[in-house]
Amino acid sequence: MDPIKRLCAAMDEGIDAALITSGPNRFYFTGMTSSAGTLFITREKAYFLIDFRYIEKARDTVKNCEVVLQDDLMGQLGELILHHQVKTVGIENRYMTISAFEGFSGGLPAEVLRDGRLQSAIDALREVKTPEEIAHLQRAQDLTDEAFRFILPYIKPGVSEQDLILELGVYMERHGSENRDINMIAISGKKTSLPHGRADTKKIESGDFVMFDMGFVIGGYHADMTRTVAVGKVSDEQRKVYATVLEAQRRALEAVRAGVPCAEVDRVARDYIDGAGYRGCFGHNLGHSVGIEVHEDPRLGPASKAVLKAGGCVTIEPGIYLAGRFGVRIEDMVIVTEDGCDDLTHSDKSLIIL
Rank of each mutant, 00 (worst) to 15 (best):
D208V: 03
M225G: 02
E102A: 13
T337Q: 05
G275D: 14
V170S: 12
V67P: 07
E178S: 08
H84M: 01
Y47S: 04
L143I: 00
Q238D: 11
K63I: 02
Q119R: 14
E205A: 12
G283S: 12
V170R: 15
F104E: 05
T337F: 05
R174L: 12
K190N: 09
V89P: 04
L351K: 13
G90Y: 07
V86Q: 02
V231F: 08
F326Q: 05
H288C: 11
I292L: 12
I55F: 15
V210C: 09
K305E: 13
T226H: 09
S304A: 11
S99P: 00
S177Y: 06
A263F: 09
S34W: 03
A186L: 01
I316A: 06
R270I: 00
R126Q: 14
M11L: 15
G107N: 11
H346D: 02
L166I: 08
P109H: 10
S193L: 01
H175D: 07
L7G: 04
H175K: 13
K191R: 13
T61H: 10
L82P: 00
N285M: 10
D271V: 01
I352Y: 15
G277F: 13
E264I: 01
V112A: 10
R251C: 02
C262I: 01
D200E: 10
D297K: 13
E102V: 06
R94K: 12
S235D: 11
E102Y: 10
G283H: 09
M333R: 07
D348C: 11
D200M: 01
E111K: 11
H284S: 14
M172V: 02
L166W: 09
F48G: 10
I81N: 11
V268C: 07
D297T: 06
A303C: 01
F148S: 00
V229T: 04
E111W: 00
G103H: 08
Y54C: 07
F27R: 12
I20F: 08
I134G: 02
L351D: 13
D2N: 14
E264T: 05
I91M: 12
E161V: 00
C313I: 14
H83G: 00
G259C: 04
R299T: 01
F216G: 06
T192Y: 06
F150Y: 15
G312Q: 14
C281L: 13
A243C: 03
A124N: 12
G197D: 11
A46V: 00
V112L: 09
N93T: 10
T130Q: 06
V67H: 11
R299G: 00
E254R: 13
N183K: 07
P261Q: 03
R126L: 08
G197S: 09
G23S: 11
L73C: 09
I98K: 12
D332Q: 08
M96W: 06
D115P: 05
T226A: 15
V234Q: 03
D115G: 10
H295R: 04
F326C: 03
Q162M: 14
R117D: 08
Q238M: 15
K233T: 13
G219T: 03
F212C: 02
G78M: 01
V265S: 10
D271N: 15
C341V: 03
H175R: 14
C65W: 03
V86L: 00
T192I: 01
H196N: 14
A100V: 04
A58K: 11
D145E: 05
Y154Q: 09
P298W: 08
G31N: 05
L108C: 09
G116V: 05
R114F: 13
E167H: 15
G23P: 00
K63L: 10
